[in-house]
Write a protein that binds this DNA or RNA. Structure first.
Lengths: 197, 197
DNA sequence: ATATTTTCTTGCCATTTGACAAGCAATCTA
DNA sequence: TAGATTGCTTGTCAAATGGCAAGAAAATAT
């Protein structure tokens, strides 16, 4: 059995269906990974074969639009799972890149290992499903935010709910995540500070 | 064993991991449901307890924004599964409504029945996972479309990929799905027809 | 430390989209 | 069929955001 991470064990134990002993068993399958700043966990066209828990550091996912510009599709801070569901579960080439924005430490398993855990542990299946459902829910929320709110409101909301993003990611990355240009975001920041926010 | 639907059997059989005999076994658990035009499969605050395959007809899901306006979150045509993942899988009150836009016929199972199938049939688990992954993937795609494309491009894309929506849904429903006002969509239509599209 | 590159800000102007209101068309209901 | 409701279009104007370019600031490399 590998050396394993107490933080990882705790992460699984948070799930209502997973008892302590099982959390340890699950965590023991994961392998430690390190990603220095600016290196990639996943690059375009490759198959995502890491289901990775981020223990420390900060990452972002991005893809390219038709004009070749980067579009940030997600930010990941510590204590989150980092993987691209379509590529990982279908074992198909990814359209996304996942990059370490700071030095990162994580723990990962392969597709095969994950399937083995799913097969042998019903409670871990439920955990896995809840991760997908959570992903869907938060993406739906983000979609509604795109439809109903102005860019400034979306930015405000991000400041409140994920302030760490503002410290870690560049304005350009944040802007494309919010669906605006970096120019507009700069102006929004200015407006808000002028009004004392 | 219930009377069951050949269309439903075929639907499951399309999945690579599911063989004919299993498809029949799965389909047999589903119960026939009918929804006259304008009736609801799910309403706000209720727990979604139907994992439903739509055999014929057309449905839409919507929620309300802060000002109380309806926002269409999805359209469902025949041969698709209709349910709200967060409410169904977490068994929590739904923030969405799902309404029949035409008379509909479907086949559904409960949360309990689904879990039983997941538990007893690994291939159905895989099917279930692929449904969630597909949902995530198409929502991501829609998100990118919101970020990178103009409303006209989004509308064009919808005309190409889901022309049946244009025949079934009202302009207002389509507009809020595309993230614009009905007024704007009306103008976009006019512009496009002026240019001969 | 200096040079170089990247990131951020700002100005000017264009485009897209929204808000509101009015009118017309289509549909439903009694 | 008349009346009412709902759905769609259009006009005017305003707000939000983008495109482009220049410069300032910050980060990075040599």
């Amino acid at each position: 059995m590998n050396q394993s991470s107490p933080i990882l064990v705790q992460f699984f134990q948070q799930h209502p269906a997973i008892i302590a002993v099982k959390a340890v068993e699950i965590a023991s399958v994961f392998t430690k990974r390190e990603f220095p700043k600016n290196t990639f966990l996943l690059t375009n066209e490759k198959i995502n074969n890491d289901y990775m828990f981020l223990e420390s550091g900060f990452m972002r996912a991005f893809t390219y639009d038709v004009d070749g510009n980067e579009v940030t599709t997600g930010f990941y801070s510590k204590q989150q799972l980092v993987f691209e569901p379509a590529s990982f579960f279908n074992q198909t080439p990814s359209k996304e890149n996942i990059q370490a924005i700071t030095d990162c430490v994580g723990w990962s398993i392969t597709f095969e290992q994950l399937n083995h855990l799913f097969h042998s542990m019903p409670e871990f299946r439920e955990f896995g499903r809840s991760i997908l459902v959570k992903g869907l829910t938060s993406l739906k929320q983000r979609m509604l935010s795109m439809i109903n709110e102005t860019a400034e409101e979306r930015y405000s909301r991000m400041m409140q709910s994920n302030p760490e993003i503002l410290q870690q990611a560049s304005l350009k990355h944040i802007a494309s995540y919010l669906g605006i240009t970096d120019t507009s975001l700069s102006r929004i920041r200015k407006e808000m500070s002028k009004r004392g926010v």
